[in-house]
Write a protein that binds this DNA or RNA. Structure first.
Lengths: 331, 331
DNA sequence: CAGCTTTGATTAAACGATTAATCTATTGGA
DNA sequence: TCCAATAGATTAATCGTTTAATCAAAGCTG
């Protein structure tokens, strides 16, 4: 492996001159710069990141901590983050916080020990990652005060609920996976605000089983809004078993626009987040913070957009609002 | 940030003694070792990986190159790899080869420039990653001669086909996504061998559309074996549209056992790979290679296992084999 | 032409850890 | 008592890069 010293020896100059020529700093004659560049090319010189890191104190590596790498959204986030990082000559080290706050904090420490210049954190549900000795960008949801960038989960919920309400549904259900999750909470809050009082609603959690949800459909619910596509698929399978057809008997919506949304039949109406934009913003803010700027004290939320497909339709018969059913949240 | 020099100053000894005490090398009195350890703890000393890397030439970082980070299997691979790496004090840098061989080779180069000690490559379909200056472990399929570790895709295909044949199906179809993929090719080859001549079969590719597949069902195919769960979901939705019921009219199988396999209705019979074991083996071989051992000249294949659920059943009526249909491979 | 600035290069220190080589007591053996 | 062996520490070099400080020569000004 060629190093700066060998180039210097080859050219009969000092290492400082080579370094200056290659980095464009200091004072080196134009002619010398070109000769050194050429020589470096010929020797296939690649600067040692270790040497540079030692000298500069920066590694050019960012740490990414995900709550659970099997989260279906992880691939897309990782991909875009990796793309953005590449274009800035940075690399991304991954870590899994394995479902609990302790592992999350250990993962963060490991990455810091590794010498990452900054941290990108998608926090564990219901946790607030402690502050670290390196700049940290939290990717979560707008309602988290420590959040730096996020999709507008509440806005997405509002979009989908407005769509459902606009179709004329007057008795609807929301389906979440875990009430502890801020993201899902915000999505549901957004849905509620999107209904704008035009429909009765009830919230179900899949951890309690889907039986109650099916019973609700039997008693007149005409639309189900799930907080994830996978959950929507589960609901769809239960509805099918119970003899209900989507969207004829019940409209159904998801969240995130995963590949399965278009593989299902009917294809799922859902809401997509602009992961590329989130990644771009996250890396931008983080690199600025690394170079000394202070983190913004208020988070950016990236709008979501509605993807209307075949799983939503006008309700077959719009039942009269049932007052005993109104605004009640199960849990 | 505390460094070795500060500890040395604090204790009134030389840096060499501190280093020796902390790494357990050289000759240091037991008592001194303990005092130095204590002092290091108190100062919150973390060794600088950059310093160590510069001296030793090793970074403790492995590079992971995936063909497409949105590959549904990526999360699980990444998770287990990350777990195994952690337990060996290693970290994982990710890179995306973005669907083409050029980007794949660039990603590999970037990682090497970054100073990774070794490379884990899940190759782009139909490509053979060129050799790199660091040890490289290729995770692919057994039929790839450069492969070091893989799931037994052919074996998995055989398992599922044996299951289907055992149920009594005599006219079946395979559904793949891309004929260029070695993995899918091996899965299908395995299926064919699993049938052991007991059934007629035909192979379809989703890129040609699913119309031909449906027509095949209309003309008597009673089982469809897909090379991925997502593909199975697509097939299911088309079957439903065409009025066929699974598994009453057609049996359907997937591959990989993704979360959607249990969210579907009926729950999907599929085949699962032991990603943990693959990750373990991959990292083991790689770390050995990094420490000087030579790579095994023959790959290890990790067995898959069959997960029987509700999407497969005996055929309703076993049609007579149609000889014109026999052993013909479309595409 | 003396004095000053500018250009183009070099010297040497620094980053933090590891380690071969060296040095100094101390212990043991004969 | 003297020499050798050994334990326990130190010295100094090294990994590859950056950069402040320095220096020599050339160019410019009045």
């Amino acid at each position: 492996m060629a190093n700066i010293k060998q180039i210097a020896a080859n050219m009969g100059v000092s290492v400082a001159t080579v370094s200056n020529a290659l980095t464009g700093k200091g004072r080196v004659s134009q002619e010398m710069v070109e000769r050194i560049r050429k020589c470096a090319d010929e020797l296939g010189y690649r600067p040692s990141l270790a040497g540079r890191a030692l000298r500069s104190g920066q590694t050019g590596i960012l740490g990414l901590v995900m709550p659970d790498l099997t989260n279906p959204l992880f691939p897309r986030i990782a991909q875009h983050l990796s793309l953005e990082a590449d274009s800035r000559q940075l690399s991304i080290l991954i870590a899994d916080s394995r479902g609990n706050a302790l592992e999350q904090s250990q993962a963060m420490k490991r990455l810091v020990d590794r010498g990452v210049d900054g941290l990108l954190i998608v926090p564990q549900k219901g946790t607030s990652p402690e502050s670290q000795p390196v700049p940290t960008v939290i990717i979560n949801t707008a309602s988290d005060p420590r959040n730096i960038v996020s999709a507008d989960h509440a806005g997405g919920g509002k979009l989908i609920a407005t769509h459902i309400a606009g179709l004329g549904h007057r008795k609807v259900a929301m389906l979440g996976a875990d009430p502890v999750s801020e993201v899902q909470g915000d999505r549901i809050d957004g849905m509620i605000s999107g209904l704008a009082g035009t429909a009765d609603f009830q919230v179900f959690w899949s951890q309690d089983g889907l039986g109650n949800l099916i019973r609700a459909v039997e008693t007149g619910v005409t639309a189900i809004m799930a907080t994830s596509d996978l959950l929507a698929l589960s609901a769809h399978s239960q509805l099918t078993r119970a003899g209900f057809s989507v969207p004829d008997d019940v409209s159904l919506t998801g969240f995130d626009d995963l590949p399965l949304a278009t593989a299902m039949h009917p294809m799922l109406t859902t809401v997509a987040q602009d992961v590329a934009q989130i990644a771009d913003r996250a890396i931008n803010v983080l690199t600025l913070a690394i170079s000394g700027e202070s983190l913004p004290d208020t988070g950016t939320t990236i709008p979501m957009h509605l993807v209307v497909r075949d799983s939503t339709a006008k309700p077959r018969h719009t039942p009269k609002p049932n007052l005993t059913f109104k605004q009640e949240i199960s849990q």
